[in-house]
Amino acid sequence: MRIPRLVSIIVLLLWGGIAIAQTSYGIGSTPTEEEMLTMDIDISPTGEGLPEGRGNAKEGAQLYMTKGCIVCHGVTLKEGPAPRLLKMDKGPDADPWEFGKILPIRSPYAPTVWDYINRAMPLGAEGTLTANEVYSLVAFLLYKNEVIEEDEIMNAQSLPKVKMPNRENWAPLPDYKPGMDRLEGYPY
């Protein structure tokens, strides 16, 4: 039968064409699930990637001392020499941006605070905190900045639900398009 054969040839040709288009260079290897889990440490602002574990501010207050945070960030979280962790006292009606560039109050999403501490603290021993310890320290900092209560438990479910004061109060980056204006009307 002629037509089906022609069709099958066309199909084969198309299939071959697609196969070529899709053919990869065949370079690289597939990471194992375990490799991916070990490497994939980022947490999305809405909490994707948060591991199991839990902590509260009281436990965090202990860890703040035992993990040495207190040495650099101070007893009251504001005397340094490392960056201040306590919001500036600007009164009840202050815009949260007036509190200063202080991670646990400025970030619009609490999981961002988790990600930051998990990857970058403590100085000289980065990446050594357990999930429970990070949850506790985040809870402690959020409590000290009057975002949550002292006994609130932070975990993968509760942390993304924390209402940060800047949640609706930040500017997203513009959608990047090649050749776009930096800013409409700006004199460059």
Partner: peptide, 14 residues
């Protein structure tokens, strides 16, 4: 989505 991760945090603006 925009992940607002370590280096991004410093880019946050009002």
């Amino acid at each position: 989505k925009y992940y607002m991760t370590y280096n991004d945090y410093g880019h946050l603006r009002q």
